[in-house]
Design a protein around this nucleic acid. Structure first.
Lengths: 240, 240
DNA sequence: CTTGGATGATAGTAACACTATCTTTGCAAA
DNA sequence: TTTGCAAAGATAGTGTTACTATCATCCAAG
């Protein structure tokens, strides 16, 4: 039996099976030339690209290396994605959609807006546990990629065109969702969206700094993500 | 008459002439193969690379294009910089050193730590006026570059090696300086360095979002940098 | 049985990221 | 004045990247 649930949150549907729940994220069709979720090769491209971008870094990652890794040819990859930047946007869009689902799911039924927002901060700043509901995506490695490479998806000359094609919609949706939660905590606060984008980006940047440029942070040698959570909570709550 | 002043802030010296003041920023020698400030060609490389990175974006910027623009050859550029990423690190390091000087200069003699910190936020978030004391660098275009490309200097696989060579020292120095100013405002605050890196990055990100992905911010159509200043002030002061 | 869409195999091109070498120029010490 | 030497110019070449094109194969639906 397959039931498709329509959630409030945009573009997400969940397929429920008797024994096993699988998450299906509907992606904007402009992100790819051929839908990678519709074939084995496509799924391999996603799986292996996450691993290769993580191990090589985005700059040194090439479609040639990906093709060899998968056991196909460059031309085969190009049938799915226009270029590696589009693939990066695809991966980030997938991640933000998945995270929006996590946020919605994990804050469901929490009445107290403060508790809710704290839960969101925890989700943003803490390493994700791989939930196995998405079979061909490794969320914890993807999380690492988003920390290091995520901003490169939009920090380009093409950002306005890409935005017109709604490629950043999942990111903007998540930001709007969190912005509204901030407003629930304090309806008079004047910068909910800017604060939302700030905590989203800083959850990642402070993590990167902690692990690579630690003198830019106040988090000790233990490299504890809990400290990032406390910093962000302080940032959000001691004012509002 | 030439007088060389040694300032507290590291690696900065100011040469004072009778009629004319020139700023000379001492750069880490690992940033280049041959010091671009010591020759006409080197200065042209800096000047034209700022313009070309701004007009093409860093990804589409190449040494070939730069060479043609200047009227020299690719090989000529490679005598000064190992590759375009090193050149980017050079430009960002120069910018952060220059900004640290600005911060030190513009907050000098301000006693009230709150007024001081507000002045810093203004400097971080407001378009710089070209002060002409640095003849071959256009600070306002460089500021635009740092907004869009600045994080790419350190968001790489090589970040730890580059950090060992102290390539990010100017950024870390600025962050430490601002962190100390935050502590002056509230000696008990637990995250001065993280808050400092947050306002530095957010001064740029909110500017980028305002101009390119405005729904991630609360700043209207007028695209006023003053609103970013107010957001950052609120972030820093309503808590501390 | 055939037909079309996905894939595989192979080739090719322009640009990019360098490295090498040889010549010329300009200036400065001997 | 000559010699020397470093910076810059000129040219060439190599391996890789980022694609595009073409043709053969395979497999499943009609």
């Amino acid at each position: 039996m397959i039931v498709t649930l329509s959630l409030q949150i945009a573009k997400l549907s969940v397929m429920l099976f008797t024994m096993d729940i699988q998450l299906k994220i509907n992606m904007n069709e402009k992100l790819f030339l051929r839908d990678p979720e519709q074939s084995e090769l496509g799924k391999k491209i996603i799986l292996h690209s996450i691993q290769l971008i993580h191990s090589n870094g985005f700059e040194a990652f090439t479609f040639k290396k990906l093709a060899i890794d998968i056991g196909t040819t460059e031309a085969g990859i190009y049938r799915y994605f226009e270029n590696k930047h589009r693939l990066l946007i695809y991966l980030t869009a997938w991640y933000w959609s998945w995270l929006e689902y996590q946020v919605t799911f994990q804050t469901n039924n929490i009445k107290d807006p403060t508790v809710k927002l704290k839960q969101v901060i925890k989700l943003l700043a803490t390493t994700v546990e791989n939930d196995h509901s998405t079979l061909y995506v490794d969320e914890s490695i993807l999380h690492q990629i988003i920390i290091t490479e995520g901003t490169k998806a939009y920090l380009t000359k093409r950002v306005s065109e890409d935005n017109k094609d709604h490629l950043f919609k999942p990111y903007k949706d998540l930001c709007a969702l969190i912005g509204n939660m901030i407003l629930e905590c304090n309806p008079d606060y004047k910068y909910p969206k800017s604060l939302a984008s700030t905590i989203i980006e800083m959850a990642h940047f402070q993590n990167f700094f902690m692990n690579n440029l630690p003198s830019l942070t106040d988090f000790g040698q233990d490299k504890n993500e809990e400290e990032i959570v406390r910093f962000l909570e302080d940032l959000v709550f001691s004012s509002r």
